[in-house]
Design a protein around this nucleic acid. Structure first.
Lengths: 326, 326
DNA sequence: ATAAAAATGATAAACGTTTGACATAACGTT
DNA sequence: AACGTTATGTCAAACGTTTATCATTTTTAT
């Protein structure tokens, strides 16, 4: 059997009370007994049972992370960063891939509640999950409205879209399209699209919006893109995520459309993966380091003080990463 | 306050015992009371406290996942798959990015113990963590020796290396190098290298091994690769992971070395990301679906029956994905 | 030597649930 | 009407810890 508090006490020749005091640094303690107890704990490889502790009212030090799918490099990097930050603060992370399925998301929420997590960071894509507020739990959201009183951290999507369009134009494009996800209210890509549209309007250019459903497989997306490129003579395209930009590069290559001479391209996200392995791609970088730091810091504030006042929205600036595609 | 068993009992007009019986499907129960209780649970949004349950001896239904870093697309996809499979079996996942730091890995192990996880799947890169066996916990390892009695699931690295070399030769290369990670005992890339060396030997060709330390940043790796390509006239290169292959493609482009005419290239891993967004890259695909399924299934077997007999090693076949780089 | 402060212990209640022992009530069957 | 079966209830112990209370001993300062 696993060693218990009692076993440690016996080995150290002290009472359970004392051992508990040592662990929780509570009350008077001499250096000598502390050492004895620590020694015993080491010898037995004792690990306090977190279940029992949290039953006593202690925090579980667990945080739930709900994202659509970490096999998407953007979320992978975000989750990786969040996990590292939280671990440094002695929190552990329960990972949830909601797969953009509202029911799964609901199930995850329930599960996280049952596991007494101290808080949640959510960045999934499903909208209208009313459940979020009804558990009085600290929640911070990434890039998407969940419910009132859930602060949103996001990058400046509007300005990102604007910047992308501007970059394309300044690179010589004047027939500029956007490839974006399905637009439902609250979706983060909406802001990007609005920024793009606003810039084009200001410049007296027409917007050409192509919606490529988010859940489409890359193969199908490729086909769509191919059709679009064959039937229009765009000389600039803003892809509202970098992966779609990569597909577009591939299609252009197949169609022998030269980039950036005939077609300029700007992506969005600018993960480390893209910057490192596709330095050629011009893209709008979301400040992932700042985003994750802010998400974690806000969450910890809320955990610390359940009704501390936080802003409704935190919008972080984006940055143009100049490659050679625009 | 959160609703408790007692609140549900009151609302349903039954005893706590009955509610508990309903939840655990234990003993005699009429359909009528079941419905009453379920209704009350729904109305109160009741969630049984998993901490209290597991104190009672129930499983926590928690599994720890220790991987070096999920911002690497290979691990991202693996973890994503594992999480999905486990969620379907009613298990939750605690994510650990060990960052290839033995101390962090040790800390994670302790933490997982303290949280009473039912089992662990580990795929980190650090060797010599003796701690793994001393906790009598179900563990399955991916692609790396941890300790006796910890089953290893891996893809057929040797054959993968062999296949890569063979592919390069059949594509017309006769001066074939390998870019691989630092070789320490137990590292999975060793097998790939051995397969490569064995094939070259069989064909009477010389091996050219370049070790690019795993932890090198992409920028530094790029420099190294550049130096290598400038100073040797290889016409075939086997990169023991796809990301390095991408870097090599980039460098070759810069140096105006044409692929595959002057230089043939084979990568390793073949994640969905690579197959979807870099279909041109010839690579050796690890069967991620099978790997994750097997990892999960073995772990669940061990959780079910702590001393069920499992093989020492499970080696899954790899597959050549033919692109245009070799 | 004395008092105050510091260190430890014994005991027990509490956290929310499960589960067994036992009792009893309702129901259907003969 | 008697019986077995099914359904529910009461009660209490248990899981491993924390923490408060009270008591006792040891140490330190005067």
């Amino acid at each position: 059997m696993k060693p218990k508090l009692n076993d440690v006490a016996q080995l150290a020749g002290v009472s359970v009370t004392t051992v508990s005091r040592v662990i929780n640094d509570h009350g008077y303690l001499s250096e000598k007994t502390k050492q004895k107890v620590f020694a015993a704990m080491r010898e037995l490889h004792y690990q306090p049972n977190n279940m029992a502790r949290s039953l006593q009212g202690k925090n579980t030090q667990l945080v739930g992370l709900i994202f659509s799918d970490i096999s998407n490099p953007f979320f992978a990097e975000l989750v990786s960063r969040i996990e590292k930050l939280l671990f440094a603060k002695n929190y552990k992370v329960i990972l949830c891939n909601s797969a953009d399925d509202p029911q799964k998301e609901r199930d995850y929420l329930q599960m996280l509640m049952a596991n007494q997590v101290d808080g949640i960071i959510a960045g999934a894509h499903n909208l209208g999950i009313e459940e979020y507020q009804q558990y009085g739990l600290p929640i911070i959201s990434f890039d998407r409205y969940l419910s009132d009183n859930v602060p949103i951290v996001s990058s400046d999507n509007f300005n990102g879209g604007w910047l992308a369009a501007q970059t394309l134009q300044q690179a010589g494009a004047d027939k500029i399209a956007i490839f974006t996800g399905k637009s439902h209210a609250g979706s983060p890509t909406n802001g990007r699209r609005e920024g793009y549209e606003a810039y084009l309007k200001q410049q007296g250019l027409t917007a050409h919006v192509h919606e490529l459903p988010f859940e489409l497989s890359p193969a199908l997306k490729t086909m769509e893109i191919r059709t679009i490129l064959e039937n229009h003579d765009y000389n600039g395209i803003f892809c509202s995520d970098d992966l779609t930009a990569l597909l577009t590069v591939n299609v252009a290559q197949q169609l022998k459309i030269s980039i950036p001479d005939e077609l300029r391209l700007v992506g969005y996200d600018g993960t480390a993966l893209i910057r490192n392995y596709h330095p050629a791609l011009t893209t709008i970088e979301q400040p992932l380091a700042d985003i994750s730091t802010l998400l974690v810091s806000l969450l910890l504030q809320r955990i610390d003080d359940a009704n501390c006042k936080l802003e409704e929205k935190y919008i972080l600036p984006v940055k143009l990463i100049k490659g050679t595609t625009a």
